[in-house]
Design a protein around this nucleic acid. Structure first.
Lengths: 213, 213, 213, 213
DNA sequence: CATGAATGAGACTTCATTCAT
DNA sequence: CATGAATGAAGTCTCATTCAT
């Protein structure tokens, strides 16, 4: 038994160390930005030697990229699923907006990384830039699909779905960002409700006509 | 006479040189980001020697700061005045939204600097960060005041003015950003109109009641 | 019995492993040079872990040294014996020259190591340098002895035997080197014959006088 | 006048500094080899800061390359010209061999660089390797042309001129190398004379027939 | 005020070597 | 003896800043 588990233990330890490095790097990158963090700093924070980082990641840029992918995927897994299903599109959007609260709460640090570094363009390289665009496209695509469906059903007013999606994203990201900077001052849930109110008033078709009906 | 004018000419020349440096730096910073531009590069682009830059700006960060202040002030002078006056608040917001087209057109480069570098936080230091917050506060303050006034007059629905202001800013900045990246693909004026439509539908009080009336 | 043999088997295995490491290292050193090969690389090629190498060799330099000694000895065993015996010195030299063909064929890789690394001086250290000189001295000594004997017998013209030996060595090494770089282009046997022709024309006493006779 | 000379003075100083760096680098490279010399070391030896080296040479490899080209050109200018002219080919070769004495005397350090590093193959890169081959080709070509001419005139025995050229080069380089290591022990002029004797005895057509005659 | 060569701290990265398992 | 993750010194190169002219 023990001998059968042994390779697994080493493997687990290695992953653990990898995680420690990623965690330290995330913290620092999110706090100070890619260019203001040195590999030395990350190594020290992760309680490893400099060279050890390179046993896990080929370069600083790769480390950052790994981080971006991981946080982006985790984040999208939190907010995109609510857009699936066959529910009422109004409910979907409502859930989507409210899901950002949990998003902001659970992944505060990762958010700084994603929203800020991935938005600024003092980026490590083209690889990161491409990933950033892919993520943006993924969100915009899903969101605009939902809005378009709502419009077809006559639930929403006839607005360019892509523009509406981008607007909603921009608003939500902006709010989260502000809240991430002053967590105790800004009341994110209340603000999200207000956003929902504003957005829905603009979007929802208050007249009775349902096109598809 | 001549001796009285001489210092003025020297002064003028000095300012001219200062402007040339700022101009070259703006171009480069906006294109490549703070950390990817060297003082050498700026000096070469401005057709000066490296050391000369330090006769005008104590450090790279100060040069960047100066740039941020200048471009921010110029930009705000373009979009904030339309919020003044005694007009109908609906007109003010409409003008404000549409003014961003000219803003994006006339200050495309400066915008990249302001929106991206000041938004990302691969920033040179706290001084820049403070200025960025000040600028944001200035816009949000004016905008929320206008919205609040509209609400008081019963023109707008009763929404948290600050949240509404931030939402609007976020949306506009996002649009401009996207348009700045693909000028020929994205039709900014059309999108601004759509934003106005969405926003106003959410904001404007379509019922006849005017609280103040 | 078994217990008496056991250490022998372990010993054999140990030597086997040692040989595998040496073999992998030889290949790599000869191909890329001492400074462009890492212990990691050698370990991987030898299918061992990094640390294992240090169970056999105290340092990278020692590993290289061991290699130099081994290949040099093997090489010298191939070309020096033909200089022994009581034959005609002209035959000895002729055999010596021709033996380089087999030398080049059988030990092509080792030759690159010996001729190039030991000749260039991007060398690991003084230990290696000393060994290199010792090897050179060994060849020169034997060769010059043969030539001196030939002169004494009146077979060769009266030339400084040491200089003649060094010249012959230099020529042969040069040829082998060139042939090692372009094996299919350079016809080593033919060139060796030509060298023999040139060298003998210069060396052999064509007049009939035999001093010792 | 002075103002006209000023740019020239700065230029002269810059070249002077460049020379100091090259000189220090030559010394160190020749002594310890490319891989065993650090830019720090060179900078210290040249009494400059590390970064200063990069104001003159884009990389360590480029610095080395510059050195190789300079020393090779200077060296070839010393030994190749004697192969020109319309003299007797025997005289040309004789001069060529003897010119190596001055070569070794005047450019002892550069020789180590050229003969050893360019011969070993722990080389900085393909650029250097290509230059090395070019140099070798240049010498071999000139030398073999002279020998071929001598053969056509019936001055020399009928030997493959390229092989003969390579042999002569190998011998001379070998001698110089040995002499460079132990200047006080090895009597280079005497050895060169002996080489000449050996070589000529092998090469020169002692029979009376002159083919062209 | 202009120049630009010089500076040197610091960044990223490699790799010979060690040691706990 | 085998393993291979960890180490950290050392290397190459960049660049903000200074200063003598």
């Amino acid at each position: 038994m023990a001998s059968a588990m042994e390779p697994s233990r080493k493997e687990r330890e290695r992953l653990q160390h990898r995680q420690e490095i990623l965690s330290a790097a995330l913290q620092l990158f999110a706090e100070k930005g890619f260019h203001n963090v040195s590999m030395q700093e990350i190594a020290t924070a992760a309680q490893f030697a400099t060279g050890t980082l390179y046993n896990f990641f080929p370069s600083k840029e790769d480390l950052f990229f790994e981080l971006l992918v991981a946080t982006a995927d985790a984040g999208l897994d939190l907010i995109l699923p609510v857009l699936e299903g066959t529910d009422d599109e109004r409910d979907k959007l409502s859930l989507f907006i409210r899901s950002h609260e949990r998003f902001a709460r659970e992944q505060a640090v990762a958010l700084r990384l994603y929203l800020l570094e991935s938005r600024g363009w003092c980026l490590p390289g083209p690889k990161v830039e491409a990933k950033k665009k892919e993520i943006d496209a993924r969100v915009t695509s899903r969101l605009s699909n939902v809005i378009a469906a709502g419009i077809r059903k006559g639930l929403f007013n006839d607005i360019d779905p892509v523009v509406a999606a981008k607007c909603l994203s921009a608003v939500l990201e902006s709010l989260i960002l502000v809240a991430a900077e002053d967590p105790q001052v800004v009341d994110l849930p209340a603000n999200l409700e207000k956003v929902e109110a504003v957005f829905f008033r603009g979007l929802v078709n208050s007249s009775g006509d349902k096109r598809d009906a």
